[in-house]
Simulated scan of single mutants.
Amino acid sequence: MARLLPVIAILAAWLYAMVDCALADRAAVRGGLPKTAWFLVTVLPAIGTALWLIFGRPRRSSPPRSGGTGGGRRPMAPDDDPDFLRGL
C-alpha cells in the first residue's frame, strides 16, 4: 500500500494539471508557449505537471480592493440586501 501512494499522488497531480491547463484562459498562460503546447507538455506525467505548475500556470489575480467606503460591493446574502428586503 505504501508503494502505491506515490503513484496515486503523481496521477492525481497529473490529472489536475491537465484539467487546469485545459480550463486556463488562453491569454493568461505564462511561459512563452501557447496553450496547446502546454497541454502537450502536461501529457508527460511528472515532468510536464511540474513544468505547468511552475512556469505555465496563470497567476491568480487578487480581488479588487474597495476604497474603504464599500462602493461597488454587493451584499452576499439575500437577507442582507436592502433591495431584496424592500420587495418582500
Rank of each mutant, 00 (worst) to 15 (best):
residue 60 R to F: 01
residue 19 V to E: 00
residue 4 L to Q: 04
residue 75 P to Y: 05
residue 69 T to H: 10
residue 13 A to D: 00
residue 2 A to N: 07
residue 85 L to N: 08
residue 28 A to H: 05
residue 41 V to A: 07
residue 24 A to Y: 03
residue 77 A to T: 14
residue 55 F to H: 02
residue 75 P to A: 12
residue 87 G to V: 06
residue 85 L to P: 02
residue 1 M to E: 05
residue 11 L to Q: 04
residue 13 A to S: 08
residue 55 F to D: 01
residue 3 R to C: 02
residue 29 V to E: 00
residue 12 A to L: 10
residue 71 G to L: 13
residue 73 R to C: 15
residue 64 P to V: 13
residue 63 P to H: 12
residue 46 A to P: 08
residue 84 F to C: 06
residue 24 A to I: 10
residue 15 L to I: 14
residue 76 M to N: 09
residue 63 P to K: 14
residue 14 W to I: 12
residue 57 R to I: 08
residue 11 L to C: 11
residue 6 P to H: 03
residue 51 L to N: 01
residue 15 L to A: 15
residue 82 P to W: 08
residue 30 R to Q: 11
residue 44 L to K: 03
residue 58 P to A: 10
residue 66 S to A: 15
residue 13 A to I: 10
residue 49 T to L: 02
residue 66 S to M: 08
residue 21 C to R: 05
residue 63 P to W: 11
residue 33 L to E: 05
residue 67 G to I: 06
residue 4 L to A: 09
residue 25 D to K: 13
residue 3 R to L: 08
residue 68 G to K: 08
residue 71 G to Y: 07
residue 64 P to I: 09
residue 13 A to M: 10
residue 46 A to M: 07
residue 3 R to Q: 00
residue 76 M to F: 12
residue 87 G to D: 03
residue 3 R to D: 00
residue 27 A to Y: 01
residue 69 T to Q: 09
residue 63 P to N: 13
residue 57 R to L: 06
residue 57 R to N: 02
residue 51 L to H: 01
residue 59 R to Q: 02
residue 7 V to T: 03
residue 45 P to E: 01
residue 46 A to N: 01
residue 4 L to R: 05
residue 23 L to E: 05
residue 86 R to G: 01
residue 6 P to K: 07
residue 2 A to Y: 05
residue 61 S to M: 03
residue 3 R to S: 06
residue 74 R to D: 00
residue 82 P to V: 15
residue 88 L to P: 06
residue 16 Y to F: 15
residue 20 D to Q: 12
residue 82 P to R: 12
residue 26 R to L: 02
residue 52 W to C: 00
residue 14 W to E: 02
residue 67 G to M: 03
residue 15 L to W: 04
residue 40 L to C: 11
residue 36 T to C: 13
residue 27 A to E: 07
residue 86 R to A: 06
residue 18 M to C: 13
residue 80 D to S: 15
residue 72 G to F: 09
residue 2 A to P: 04
residue 81 D to Y: 06
residue 76 M to E: 05
residue 75 P to Q: 05
residue 25 D to W: 02
residue 83 D to S: 11
residue 10 I to E: 01
residue 24 A to Q: 04
residue 59 R to D: 00
residue 15 L to K: 11
residue 31 G to S: 03
residue 52 W to P: 01
residue 25 D to N: 12
residue 78 P to C: 08
residue 45 P to L: 06
residue 47 I to Y: 03
residue 12 A to T: 10
residue 41 V to Q: 03
residue 32 G to N: 11
residue 10 I to Q: 04
residue 10 I to G: 06
residue 29 V to P: 04
residue 35 K to L: 15
residue 80 D to A: 15
residue 21 C to K: 06
residue 26 R to D: 09
residue 48 G to C: 08
residue 88 L to M: 10
residue 72 G to S: 10
residue 76 M to T: 14
residue 64 P to Q: 05
residue 81 D to I: 14
residue 40 L to I: 11
residue 19 V to H: 00
residue 61 S to N: 01
residue 37 A to N: 10
residue 69 T to G: 14
residue 84 F to S: 09
residue 64 P to Y: 00
residue 9 A to C: 06
residue 16 Y to H: 14
residue 62 S to V: 13
residue 37 A to Y: 09
